[in-house]
C-alpha cells in the first residue's frame, strides 16, 4: 500500500506544484487524472524517489520513500513521461543493461528474459536495431518493457500511452491489467479513456490540489440527470458557458454540439438530458469538485502548502 500524506512541493521561485496531497493507493490499478500542469508528474517523480518534496510523507509498505528513496527503488517499476535511451545501443543491449542495474534475474537467464520482455512489448523485430533508429512508439514500448521488468511492488507509469497506436495501447492495457493483479499500478494520465478502461479507482489533481478520489462508476453516478447535450451557435454556447460548465464542445457536421453540467435548475432550451460519461465526471471534478467525492479537506491541505511557501 502506498500512502501519501500532506505532500507539498514548492519549486524555487515560489511555484507551488503540490499543495498538500493525501492519498492511499491500494493494490490494483489506480488512475491519476489531471489537466496539463496539474502537478501529476511532480507527484509521480516524488513517488519514484527522483524528486525531494518540500513537506509531507510518502510510504510504500511502511518504507519511507522521502527519507530512503533508494530503498524503494528495488520495489519500483517506473516509466517517466519524458525519457530517452543511449542512442548507440540496440534495444536488447539497452534493456539488458537496465535490468542489470535493477537487479532483475530469471531462472532462464537474462538474455532469455530480455527476449521475452521485448516480445511482450512487440519489439522482437527491432531487438538488434540501435535505439536511435526507433520510432517514438517503439521507444515508449522499450520504456514499458523496463518498467514492468522484475517483480516490483509498485509500478508508476506517467502518460504511458502517449505515442502508442491504438493496437499497442490495447496491448499495453492488458499488460498493466495483468500486472495489477498482484501489485499497485499508478497510472498518471490526462487521457480519460485510459482510466475508464483500466482503473477501478482514480484521483483527480488540479493546480496541485487533490480534487477528488473516487471510482469511475461513482463519479458518473453523481452526475446522473445533470448532464445535458444540445446544439447551438457560438454565441449561444458563449451564453450557456457563463451559467453552466461545458464538459464537451465538439463540431458535428459543421455545428457545435456541447455537453453541459447543470448543477440545479432547468437546462437551457434545446438541451436534452443524457447519460454521464467519465469525461463529464472528470471535467466537473476538475472545475466543480464535490465534497462528497474528495477524500480529504482540500482547504486544510491548501493551508499546509501556504505555510510551506511562507
Amino acid at each position: 500500500m502506498l500512502k501519501v500524506r500532506q505532500l507539498v512541493k514548492v519549486y524555487p521561485g515560489g511555484v507551488t506544484a503540490l499543495r498538500g496531497i493525501d492519498l492511499d493507493v491500494p493494490k490494483g490499478m489506480y488512475g491519476l487524472l489531471g489537466p496539463n500542469g496539474a502537478g501529476k508528474s511532480t507527484f509521480m517523480k516524488i513517488l519514484a524517489g527522483l524528486l525531494e518534496p518540500t513537506g509531507g510523507e510518502v510510504t510504500l509498505d511502511d518504507l519511507d520513500v522521502v527519507a530512503q528513496p533508494e530503498a524503494v527503488h528495488s520495489r519500483l517499476g517506473y516509466l517517466p513521461q519524458d525519457f530517452g535511451f543511449y542512442p548507440h545501443l540496440t534495444g536488447t543491449q539497452m534493456l539488458t543493461y537496465l535490468l542489470k542495474l535493477k537487479g532483475v534475474t530469471s531462472p532462464k537467464g537474462l538474455p532469455h528474459l530480455v527476449s521475452e520482455l521485448l516480445e511482450r512489448v512487440n519489439l522482437t523485430f527491432a531487438a538488434k536495431r540501435k535505439v536511435k533508429g526507433y520510432s517514438g512508439g517503439m521507444r515508449q514500448r522499450l520504456g514499458i518493457a523496463q518498467a514492468v521488468a522484475g517483480n516490483p511492488r509498485l509500478i508508476i507509469v506517467d502518460e504511458p500511452t502517449a505515442g502508442l497506436d491504438p493496437e499497442e495501447r490495447q496491448r499495453f492495457y492488458r499488460l498493466l491489467a495483468e500486472l495489477a493483479d498482484e501489485r499497485s499500478v499508478l497510472l498518471s494520465t490526462h487521457i480519460v479513456e485510459d482510466v475508464a478502461v483500466l482503473c477501478p479507482r482514480f484521483a483527480v489533481i488540479s493546480k496541485g490540489r487533490l480534487m477528488a478520489e473516487t471510482t469511475p462508476t461513482q463519479a458518473q453516478a453523481r452526475l446522473e440527470g445533470k448532464i445535458f447535450e444540445g446544439r447551438g451557435s457560438n454565441e449561444e454556447l458563449r451564453a450557456i458557458r457563463d451559467r453552466h460548465l461545458v464538459t464537451q464542445a465538439i463540431l458535428v457536421e459543421g455545428r457545435n454540439r456541447a455537453r453541459i453540467f447543470v448543477a440545479d435548475g432547468p437546462a437551457p432550451a434545446g438541451f436534452e438530458p443524457v447519460s454521464a460519461t467519465l469525461e463529464d465526471a472528470y471535467m466537473t471534478l476538475v472545475h466543480a469538485p464535490a465534497d462528497d467525492l474528495t477524500c480529504r479537506a482540500v482547504d486544510a491541505a491548501a493551508s499546509v502548502a501556504d505555510e510551506a511557501v511562507a
Binding site: 532483475v104 530469471s106 511482450r120 523485430f125 517483480n151 495483468e178
Partner: peptide, 23 residues
Amino acid sequence: EGGTVDFLDEAPLASMEMQTARP
C-alpha cells in the same frame, strides 16, 4: 514491424519468473 500477436497467445508475465533483488 511486429505483427499482431493475439493477446490470448501472449505468455503471462508471471511465466517469466522474474525476480528482483537490490544488485
